[in-house]
Amino acid sequence: MKKQRLATGCYYHVYNRGNNKENIFKEAENYIYFLKLWNKYIEPVAETFCYCLLPNHFHFFIRMRELQTFEVFKTSKVLTQPNQEQHFSNFFNAYSKAINKAYNRTGSLFQKGFKRKEIINESYYTSIIGYIITNPVRHGLCNSSAEYLYSAYEAILSDKTTLLLRNEVIDWFGCKEAFIDYIRAYESNLPDKYELLK
Rank of each mutant, 00 (worst) to 15 (best):
K115L: 02
R116M: 10
R116C: 14
I119Y: 04
I119M: 03
I120T: 13
I120S: 07
S123R: 04
Y124E: 02
Y125F: 15
Y125P: 00
T126N: 01
S127Q: 14
I128Q: 04
I128D: 02
I128R: 02
I129Y: 01
I129N: 04
I129K: 04
I129L: 14
I132V: 13
T134N: 12
P136F: 06
V137N: 05
V137G: 07
H139G: 06
G140S: 11
S144L: 08
S144Q: 14
A146F: 14
E147P: 00
Y148C: 06
Y148M: 08
L149I: 07
L149V: 04
Y150T: 08
A152P: 12
A152I: 05
A152Y: 05
I156T: 14
I156L: 15
L157Y: 10
S158D: 13
S158F: 05
D159M: 01
T162F: 01
T162P: 05
L163P: 07
L164G: 09
L165I: 02
L165T: 03
R166E: 08
V169E: 00
V169A: 06
D171Y: 04
W172G: 11
F173G: 12
G174W: 05
C175W: 03
C175Q: 09
E177F: 14
A178T: 13
F179G: 11
D181W: 06
Y182V: 11
R184G: 04
R184L: 12
R184F: 05
R184C: 06
A185V: 02
Y186E: 08
Y186W: 08
Y186T: 01
E187I: 06
S188P: 01
N189E: 11
N189Y: 04
N189D: 03
L190Q: 01
P191Y: 09
K193Y: 14
K193I: 10
K193H: 12
K193Q: 09
K193R: 08
E195W: 12
